[in-house]
């Protein structure tokens, strides 16, 4: 069997070392080795976006990244979004706008929205829908998600 190797990455600002096999995805390691189960598994083939995390600042589907590829990288997951016990603007807007039902897609949508607002702080509805096209939701019908993203963007613009 291929040797396990030590991988070192900065996850949500903390240096984390873990042991993994080449065949383990970043998603598997986050959930099963590091107990960071906020990142969800939907399809495991890159289509649903439930497993979205930020890798060196870019949104990626962690089910299509090998954990070993993350060596030396900086990762942000849903666990790193709230500031202490305070939800950030995006989380708060999803909650207030009822932009979730079962919630399995929500961490992925929130990470993707964080990436969107970083790149484009005041997106149009069309830009929001386009940027979030890689995230699927079986429950909400998307409208409330789009409204929540707009609300979060406005709140951030007003406070910065």
């Amino acid at each position: 069997m291929a040797k396990k190797r030590v991988v070192s990455a900065t996850i949500n600002g903390e240096v984390v070392e873990f042991l993994c096999e080449p065949r383990q995805t970043l998603l598997e390691v986050l959930r099963d080795t590091l107990d960071m189960t906020g990142t969800k598994e939907g399809c495991s083939n890159g289509n649903c976006g439930a497993c979205t995390v930020l890798l060196d600042g870019r949104p990626v589907v962690s089910c299509l990244v090998l954990a070993m590829e993350a060596d030396g990288s900086e990762i942000r997951t849903i666990e790193g979004v709230a500031r202490g016990s305070h939800l950030d603007e995006v989380q708060q807007a999803f909650l207030e706008g009822a932009a979730l039902q079962c919630g399995i897609c929500t961490p992925g949508f929130i990470m993707q929205t964080e990436a969107l607002l970083q790149a484009n702080p005041n997106p149009t509805e069309e830009e929001i829908r386009f940027y979030l096209a890689g995230n699927l939701c079986r429950c909400t019908g998307y409208d409330k998600i789009v409204r929540a993203v707009q609300a979060a963007a406005q709140k951030r613009l007003a406070t910065t």
Partner: peptide
Amino acid sequence: IGGIQIQSR
């Protein structure tokens, strides 16, 4: 090609 997440890779 794919969505934004796919285009990152």
